[in-house]
Design a protein around this nucleic acid. Sequence first.
DNA 1: GCTTAATGTGTAAAAAATACACATTTATTT
DNA 2: AAATAAATGTGTATTTTTTACACATTAAGC
Lengths: 244, 244
Amino acid sequence: MNIDQGKKVPKKSINRIQQEVQNSSGITLSVDCVIFGFDENKLKVLLIRSDITKFKEQWSLLGDLVDPNEDIDAAANRIVFERTGMSDVYLEQVQTFGKIKRHPAGRVVTVAYYSLLNIHQYSLKKFDNEIHWHDVSSVTNLAFDHQEIFDICNARLQKRILEHPLGFNLLPKKFSLRELQNLYESILELKMDRRNFRKKFFAMDLLTDLEEVETNVTHRPGKLYQFNFNKYQNKKKSWAGIDF
Amino acid sequence: MNIDQGKKVPKKSINRIQQEVQNSSGITLSVDCVIFGFDENKLKVLLIRSDITKFKEQWSLLGDLVDPNEDIDAAANRIVFERTGMSDVYLEQVQTFGKIKRHPAGRVVTVAYYSLLNIHQYSLKKFDNEIHWHDVSSVTNLAFDHQEIFDICNARLQKRILEHPLGFNLLPKKFSLRELQNLYESILELKMDRRNFRKKFFAMDLLTDLEEVETNVTHRPGKLYQFNFNKYQNKKKSWAGIDF
DNA sequence: GCTTAATGTGTAAAAAATACACATTTATTT
DNA sequence: AAATAAATGTGTATTTTTTACACATTAAGC
């Protein structure tokens, strides 16, 4: 992970975006990112205070216009980098929102992504006090149509994490099985059986036992593991069940 | 389903699109549709012959630019309607393709949809002999980046049909279990056990037995069924297994 | 009425998911 | 140093789901 203290961040106010949109004769394209983190056993999302009058006091997702000379994936990476100082983060395109009146400034079609990153590598807290991490469970009433976008991205994450080992992107390199289970439980908003959870992960054979244990913990320390990406290759299930 | 013989179809040549793209200072937005049908036990896709010189002799997906006063979902519905005469068809947005150089005419970002329709209601064959149904299994070398778009939409359909009862959109209202199984087998490109397939569908309790049988068939006729949409409500599984 | 070709049906075995309890380890308290 | 608190680590029995598999039945065509 490349961490930069954000010196290169070009400040793009939403008012500038408003101007650009209003100057455009056609459709303006933007990218919005639902940036997830995991801290204190809670799933978090990074939000910025909206500075459009209509949405005063509401929070919104991090986004920006796509430059005509920029791939949309690149725009998503740029937004995450500008706002977190991190590159090489996990990003997945989710859906494009294109209702005529979804944005007050004019016709803006937005491509939504979600991103998973290790919140402890996030380091721009000092540079923009309009940006904060929020508990996913308490996110309501976002600006624009961002609540809908957020809900859909969150649902997508819930689904994806059951199909692919993405959770590791939210954890430090070394983690305990308890941390992993807490992560799953907070994303899925349910409780799981500890023995079955462990059994499942060991059976998948994706974890490397680091032969280390937690420290600074007030009880019996758990063993530490690392995600083994190599083992994951070719594990993708060839599936033919039907399940509605 | 509303069938119109296509009289209102505004002929939009790709050359017109080229012009519009080249006149634009920013990003142009289009929609491309992978229109699926099912006929003679084969999954089919509707393609049009490309008229851009560079892609002469290649086929491409059906698409068009999005009008600034048009929702993108509306654009997808319009494209399907203009090309098939059908409205109220199943449409699902899949992914947005936004590489800078994906289109030779300039910066065109395209939102891909797939559509499922009853091929027997398709009725525009006479109006545009540049449009044809192709076996999905033999689609190769499409124009632009349409092969990639097609492959991703096809993969999405394969996944979705295992999770939701979408197949019915491709069949006539009345169908036999054999037809349904053929549909699944051709979409998933595999063979299934007949008894288990039937057991599965009966267990899901989504079919209404019409107490009728096939006609014009040279062997013992199968019973006919209808998809029961009401029963489907609230069947969506509440799932918490982990499966990579 | 004989042949052909597909429909319709049940059970046993294997695999996967679930429910569940107790001994162990470390830090903390007394 | 012993007792307590809090979480880790582990195995088995039960249930559910998935899979494999064979034969009698029906209608049409000859």
